[in-house]
Design a protein around this nucleic acid. Structure first.
Lengths: 226, 226
DNA sequence: TAGTAAAGTTACAATAAAGTTACAAAAATA
DNA sequence: TATTTTTGTAACTTTATTGTAACTTTACTA
């Protein structure tokens, strides 16, 4: 229960969406990105599913048996579960369209699953209570996006920081090289040599000290809390 | 009670609107943006709700049992609560009528919730008292909307001030470049090049000193309190 | 324990991000 | 309307980042 005990991968999502093509696509995509995702397709099923404990909900505004805003208002709001609305762009005349324009957690169809993933990550990151992660003498401050070693600020490059973040979010767990390639480099669009990882790890270790990141040969890397 | 004890988040709004889709959408949106919002859907309910102490009112002009202008004139005006009118009718006559009545602002449907939020923020900012933010040798006086460096007033342009304000409101936290584009430039309507941000930062730094705003490469900018 | 595969090092060129400067269009002000 | 300020862009510089290649070390295993 609660965000502070879950690390990176094992978040549980509920998707309430009646379009099968969308729900299946998202299911595959989110599972690939280490989210545990349940899918229901109606207002009613949505209500029933809410007995479970989800970290976030992705909610289609127009369901076959009801309205998503309504469902949010009546059932979800009180539970304080972060929710992202999905709305169709062809609600042209609808004023709801106006509402979708700027709101933080609205996504308009058609959307890219990558974008949606980014928003989910974002929301869960914000909700996470423990936004200051620690391991040995290293502190990763997610608010400041700054890393400290014994209270001294350490300057990392964008990718170095992303790698370290991924390791911190999976603290006490191995992050495989494949995962690194996937999560760090797939989004940059660059198809990158495997050795590049090694070089980056060397760079991070140079700045943070060689003991913070443990190598598990043939598998990947790990950061331990203590 | 009153504005001086409230900080950013905990403002109380009253929305008087009979269209459920709008009220539900706005309810969700404003709550996400840390406003406490009550909703009623009729003229009568509106009058009854006014016994509470609201910081601002969003008022639909056409209610099922009466006219919003009328409600404002008879019940709200005397209480001196800032009010924003919502109306579907986009004609000159109504705008004039609303403004001559003394309303703070006027928004025509369809509108974006972001625009409305901006206006509410704006109004409440004006009403807000004793908001003086400090970081190092810089003081941002939100009442006077004036910036000081070592007690000397610094003149910033509108956008420069908005950017600085956003950074100050997120003191000790990174503000990403995307957020800047979103919050500063989306409302102006201009689709702006990413480099523009850099130029503005340069301008602000020129006036305030280069040390006040920290760059986090690949992420954004940050102001630290100390 | 020699061979091998994986990871670590080092150095370097290509690239990208941010900083700078100057300028013209657009707004605001006088 | 003229003048000044603001705003956004373009061209350029600087700096930091990124990816690769060539080489070295480490540790597993046959």
């Amino acid at each position: 229960m609660g965000y502070n005990k879950r690390h990176g991968g094992d978040m549980k999502l509920l998707l309430i969406e009646d379009n099968e093509q969308i729900s299946q696509g998202l299911s595959y995509f989110f599972q690939k990105n280490n989210y545990d995702i349940d899918i229901v397709s109606t207002y009613k099923e949505g209500i029933n599913s809410l007995t479970n404990d989800y970290d976030a909900i992705i909610l289609d505004v127009s369901l076959p048996d009801g309205n998503g805003f309504d469902l949010y208002d009546k059932e979800i709001k009180a539970k304080n579960i972060p929710t992202i609305f999905l709305t169709a762009i062809d609600d042209e005349e609808n004023v709801v369209k106006g509402l979708t324009l700027g709101a933080e957690d609205y996504v308009t169809k058609p959307f890219s699953s990558k974008e949606l993933l980014a928003r989910v990550n974002n929301i869960l990151m914000r909700k996470r209570k423990n936004r200051i992660l620690k391991a040995k003498d290293i502190v990763f401050d997610m608010d400041k996006m700054t890393i400290y070693k014994n209270d001294t600020e350490i300057s990392l490059s964008g990718l170095e920081r992303k790698i370290l973040e991924l390791l911190f979010l999976n603290i006490n767990k191995v992050v495989t090289r494949d995962t690194l390639l996937d999560k760090i480099w797939e989004l940059t669009g660059n198809d990158v040599d495997d050795h590049t990882i090694t070089v980056y790890l060397k760079r991070i270790r140079e700045k943070l000290g060689s003991d913070i990141i443990i190598t598990i040969k043939g598998v990947g890397y790990r950061i331990d809390e203590e």
